[in-house]
Deep mutational scan, measured.
Amino acid sequence: MTVLPKDIPGDSLKVTVGTANGKPGDTVTVPVTFADVAKMKNVGTCNFYLGYDASLLEVVSVDAGPIVKNAAVNFSSSASNGTISFLFLDNTITDELITADGVFANIKFKLKSVTAKTTTPVTFKDGGAFGDGTMSKIASVTKTNGSVTIDP
């Protein structure tokens, strides 16, 4: 049996954390987006972790974005102690894959008090994996961190 590389060099799934701005007490939304989904033969499963400074940001909610089908079954998240974990699994293993680019999740943060303008990162942590529509590992994932700026 011969195994051929399935990824064209330079191609990767792009996962990007967005940015937001606000004043202390505001609730802002930071999107997590996927790009080049079709090039990577869709997404059938993924789990990953984001870190944030809990002294500056309070997670209000984490909701599935419009590219997630049947989110009540296929999407899960949790947030505590400065870490947000995400889990997606197409429970049907074929019919509810992520097949389009767009917003995977929206994180709502309540901004805490600061004395001066502060930009705090929302960054990928170690761990996690992504699988394509056949549940094979997506070897190349380009992750881009985001941030939230609090301006009193």
Rank of each mutant, 00 (worst) to 15 (best):
P24H: 13
S80K: 15
G102N: 01
F109D: 00
S61P: 07
N74M: 02
I107W: 00
G131R: 00
P31L: 11
V28D: 07
V60Y: 13
A79Q: 14
V43H: 05
L89H: 02
F75R: 02
N21C: 13
L97Y: 00
F86K: 03
C46E: 01
K110S: 04
G65N: 07
G18E: 08
G18C: 14
S136D: 01
T94G: 03
A35E: 09
T142L: 08
V122Y: 02
A35D: 06
T16I: 14
M135W: 01
S55F: 15
V103F: 06
P24M: 06
P9I: 07
Y49L: 00
L13G: 04
I107N: 04
S76V: 04
V73L: 07
N81H: 15
V30W: 12
G22S: 13
L57Q: 13
L89W: 03
D63I: 13
V15A: 12
K41N: 10
G102M: 15
K110F: 02
E58C: 10
V60L: 08
F34C: 12
K143Y: 01
S136M: 05
A105Y: 01
V15R: 06
G25Y: 12
S77G: 09
A100W: 07
A139C: 04
A72R: 14
F104S: 04
S77I: 14
A100Y: 06
T134A: 05
F88K: 00
G146R: 04
G44T: 01
M135P: 00
S80R: 15
N47I: 02
T94Y: 15
S12V: 11
L57K: 10
V28H: 09
S76Y: 09
N74P: 01
T94C: 03
N21W: 12
A38N: 09
L111Y: 03
F48P: 01
F124Q: 02
G131W: 03
V141F: 02
V62D: 05
T83Q: 03
D11F: 13
P66A: 12
T120H: 06
V141Q: 04
V28T: 11
F109R: 02
T115S: 07
N42A: 14
K108E: 06
K110M: 08
D7G: 11
A72M: 14
V37L: 05
A79F: 15
I98M: 08
V32L: 09
V114C: 06
D101F: 04
T83V: 15
G18I: 12
D7I: 10
G133D: 04
K108Y: 05
T92S: 01
S136A: 02
N47A: 01
K41T: 12
D53K: 10
P5E: 06
V28S: 10
S76A: 14
M40K: 07
V43P: 01
P5R: 02
V62Q: 07
V17D: 05
K125W: 07
V3H: 11
D36Y: 09
T27A: 11
T33F: 09
K125V: 01
F86W: 01
A79P: 05
I138N: 02
S85E: 01
K137Y: 02
V32N: 06
V73G: 02
G127S: 03
P66M: 14
K23L: 10
S85G: 01
G82N: 15
T29K: 09
L50E: 08
L50F: 08
D90W: 04
N47C: 03
D26S: 12
D126P: 15
N145C: 03
Y52D: 04
F75P: 01
K137F: 00
L89S: 01
K41H: 09
V60T: 11
G82V: 15
A72W: 11
T29Q: 06
S78L: 15
P152S: 10
D101S: 14
N106K: 07
K108F: 05
S78A: 15
D53R: 11
V59F: 11
A100Q: 05
V17L: 13
G131V: 02
K108D: 00
P9A: 09
F104K: 03
T27S: 13
D95N: 05
G146A: 06
D36L: 12
T144S: 07
P5K: 05
T134G: 02
V28I: 13
T94N: 01
V62Y: 08
V59L: 12
A105E: 07
V60N: 13
G128T: 02
K125L: 05
F124Y: 02
G22C: 05
M135F: 05
C46P: 01
L97V: 04
K69T: 10
F48Y: 13
D63S: 14
K112T: 04
N81F: 15
G82M: 15
G65D: 10
D126C: 15
I107P: 01
K23A: 12
T134C: 14
K108Q: 06
I138E: 01
P5G: 08
K69F: 11
F104P: 00
G65M: 12
T33H: 10
L111H: 04
E58K: 10
K41D: 13
N74S: 03
T144C: 05
V114D: 07
D53E: 07
G10M: 11
S140R: 13
Y49C: 05
K41E: 08
G131T: 01
N74Q: 00
K137C: 01
N74R: 00
T19D: 13
S55N: 12
I150H: 15
I93F: 15
V37W: 03
V103I: 06
L87G: 00
A71V: 12
T29Y: 11
A20K: 07
N70F: 06
L89D: 00
P24T: 11
V141S: 02
A129Q: 00
S113P: 05
M40T: 12
A116D: 06
P31H: 11
K69L: 08
T2S: 14
V15D: 14
L97F: 00
N21S: 12
S140Y: 05
A71L: 07
D126Y: 15
K41C: 07
K39Y: 09
A71D: 12
T123S: 07
D101E: 06
F130R: 02
V37A: 13
G128D: 02
F124V: 04
N106Q: 08
A38D: 08
D36R: 13
V148L: 07
C46D: 03
V3S: 10
D101Y: 07
V68W: 01
S147C: 05
T99H: 07
S55T: 12
V103G: 05
T123H: 10
S147F: 06
C46Y: 06
I67C: 12
D26L: 13
S80G: 08
L97R: 03
S61V: 09
F104Q: 04
N145H: 03
F75L: 12
I107A: 02
D101N: 09
A71I: 11
V62K: 10
P152H: 14
G82D: 15
T16L: 11
T118S: 09
D7T: 12
T149A: 14
N81K: 15
I84Q: 05
P5Q: 05
E96N: 00
L50M: 09
N91I: 11
I138C: 09
P121R: 12
C46W: 05
P66S: 12
I8Q: 10
I98K: 05
N91Q: 05
K23F: 09
G51I: 12
T16H: 10
L13I: 09
I150L: 14
A71Y: 14
A105D: 00
L56A: 08
T134W: 06
K110A: 04
L4G: 10
N81L: 15
D7F: 14
N47Q: 01
T120C: 03
N70Q: 09
S147N: 05
K39F: 14
V15N: 08
D11G: 13
A116I: 06
T115G: 06
S80D: 05
G65Q: 09
I98P: 01
T29E: 12
V37T: 10
A64N: 11
A35Y: 07
K117T: 04
A71H: 11
V122M: 07
N47F: 01
F130W: 03
N81T: 15
V28C: 08
V60D: 12
D11H: 13
I98C: 08
L50K: 05
V141D: 03
G133F: 06
P121W: 03
G10T: 09
F109K: 00
V30Q: 14
S136R: 08
T92M: 04
G51L: 07
G18V: 09
G127D: 04
P152F: 15
T27R: 09
L97G: 04
V30S: 09
K23T: 12
L97P: 15
S140N: 05
T142K: 09
I67P: 13
K110L: 02
I8P: 08
I93H: 02
P121Y: 05
V3F: 13
A71E: 14
K14I: 08
F109I: 02
D11M: 14
I150W: 07
T99S: 06
P9D: 14
G133P: 00
F34A: 06
G133E: 04
V30N: 09
V32R: 02
T92P: 06
T83H: 14
T19V: 13
K137L: 00
P5T: 08
V28Q: 08
S85A: 14
G82T: 15
T149C: 15
I84Y: 02
S147L: 06
S136W: 15
